[in-house]
Design a protein around this nucleic acid. Structure first.
Lengths: 342, 342
DNA sequence: GCTAATCATGGTAGCGCTACCATTTGTCTG
DNA sequence: CAGACAAATGGTAGCGCTACCATGATTAGC
């Protein structure tokens, strides 16, 4: 009784099965599903009924092969656990959840080589768009992006020379603004504490340095950094190092909020008054910054929006209308709180 | 001069180009890349040289279509920003980074319906394996998993009835252990504070309740929960609610570490002594728990290992040797710290 | 009223790869 | 040394879908 199935394939219904059941050509089924406007009302109804009855689901692999284009967004981030990128990725997911696009995330581990390798892998499937964190691609990675044959959005930062499109903000300005705030509040011996000094951290440091030099207060001994990945406990340790090096420290600009929280805890532990003896500023403005005691001043960045906007721009480009503005600076906002309120 | 390229396709080299250049059949190239052992040393060298020279990269879509199997791991998690799942996902990525497998993550937003939809999407590409968080799939989702035709690993929890394999631990035991620790330390009016009460949170609550009932101390007014997503600031708010409801509270078991941190901050703010007046226990043991002041007792869970082990089990199953032990309980560890040291 | 443009549909021929089934050669057994 | 068997290689025929190019039917234009 069972009709003979082809030897390969899992026996799932194919577009030909649907076409047969609906009494139309396979190509019409294909069109009914992808460009409903090009198929007459009548046939469309019949076809959708057949699709439903058979439980037909198009095979994305066959589709990608035939059309030389996979319905996949490739996303490259340097870390999955860093809340900053997690928020960007969340924005990307939320913006794509009602679209046919699937998402493939690559974790570069802050390595240019790994980024190139992943770009190669991603490129081989002809993705619909690529979203990559950062603007400091290796020459090889940049070439891969330029030849990807799809919209590319660089996110997290803005810069002068986009591969295609960019959504981010200026980390240098962010670092400078944070430092200037400490200076304006009256702090003088302001340290910089940073872990995992990736290019964006470097630019925040550059912003700090610019502000300190403008005030005639820069001293290299005020800077404490490490390549080790950032964490709250590391923030505590680095702060102790900084204090040992420079006991008269009266403020710190922390490269991120984890570090800032570690500093705050160490202040509690060592009975150092915040904001009286030490002012603390963080970066990113995670939720906990406003809850801590004292609450911590931080530079709010629009991470989720970076994700959603990058998708919107990529989708527009896919649809054929590239946004006029290819570089979008979403800015940042200094959130003044108790940790610098003296 | 230019040899005519086929009208479709991006003009990238194909397996036929490599075969021609190496002077062998296409199928031999295919084998040289996938099962090197089955091709003679000589040919293999020639083929790899041709691959290199042409810059050939296999098309994963064509491969998936021809072999009815995509080299993709589908991963389903309820949240991308929750550090707990981020760690699991990181373990998955690290274990798969040297393999040919790509990863596709789906975000279910804690919704069974969304989980079913994503399972449908993932299933349509015939993934090599599926890793899903949780054991409380809807009947529809469960059916999709059973018919996926690939290894399936349910992670985060263990339970009696796996679809295929399981890696996790008992949240009920975790909740009970945390609560018993508070009881043994002498706390009596112990509250439970939890946000986003997903099935795992419910079971931690059940563990709390079991311990409290065993001690004859359970009182429903000690329990404060909300379906709202968890955050540090929410922890603070819920703790205030809990105190308002039950001013004599002398301990809290927090459903996770964010909540615990919020509670700690509120204690600082309201000058409530920790651990003297209130004992605090968190869940998951994020890095910051050991750094906070006072440091916070928490139940350490092995999230990264859940990720790596789930991949190892899936890979073994793909290779044909399913692990004997299909359910692996990775347990947890109570980390006693200052917040309960009285 | 006749040609030209538009619309709705279908047939054919791949997309780039691998499963399946030869074929050839070399090696082992009795 | 014949027959059996394994190892190395290749040819063919799809996998399930869509791009491209017809085809016939309708409408528009002058």
């Amino acid at each position: 009784m069972s009709k003979p199935r082809s030897r390969r394939g899992g026996g799932r219904p194919t577009i030909a099965d649907v076409a047969r059941k609906a009494g139309v050509g396979a190509i019409t089924v294909s069109r009914a599903l992808r460009e409903p406007g090009r198929v007459s009302e009548d046939l469309r109804r019949q076809i959708l009924a057949a699709v439903d009855e058979l439980g037909y689901v198009p095979d994305p692999n066959a589709r990608a092969l035939a059309s030389a284009r996979a319905e996949v967004f490739g996303v490259l981030v340097p870390s999955l656990t860093n809340n900053v990128f997690a928020e960007v990725v969340r924005g990307i997911y939320d913006s794509l959840s009602d679209s046919p696009f699937r998402i493939q995330i690559g974790n570069t581990h802050y390595s240019g080589l790994e980024e190139e390798r992943l770009l190669q892998v991603f490129g081989s499937q002809r993705p619909a768009a690529l979203i990559v964190a950062g603007i400091d691609q290796t020459p090889g990675a940049r070439r891969l992006l330029e030849n990807a044959g799809c919209p590319v959005v660089q996110v997290m930062e803005t810069g002068p020379d986009p591969v295609d499109m960019m959504v981010g903000f200026s980390h240098l300005d962010g670092g400078r603004t944070a430092t200037e705030h400490l200076l304006q509040t009256g702090y003088r011996k302001i340290g910089f504490i940073g872990a995992r000094m990736d290019p964006r951290s470097q630019r925040r440091l550059a912003g700090y340095r610019a502000a300190m030099e403008a005030a005639g207060l820069f001293d290299p001994r005020l800077v404490t950094t490490t390549p080790v990945p950032s964490s709250v406990s590391l923030g505590r340790e680095l702060f102790r190092d900084a204090l040992a090096k420079m006991p008269t420290l009266d403020g710190v600009f922390c490269n991120n909020d984890d570090i800032a929280l570690g500093v705050l805890f160490e202040c509690h532990r060592a009975s150092i008054g915040v904001p009286k003896q030490i002012g603390i500023v963080g970066f990113n403005d995670l939720d906990m910054m406003q809850v801590s005691f004292p609450s911590i001043t931080s530079v709010r960045t629009h991470r989720y929006e970076i994700g959603t906007l990058s998708v919107a721009m990529a989708l527009a480009a896919i649809a054929g209308n590239r946004p006029q503005q290819r570089i979008v600076d979403l800015g940042f906002e200094l959130m003044r709180r108790e940790s610098t309120a003296r």
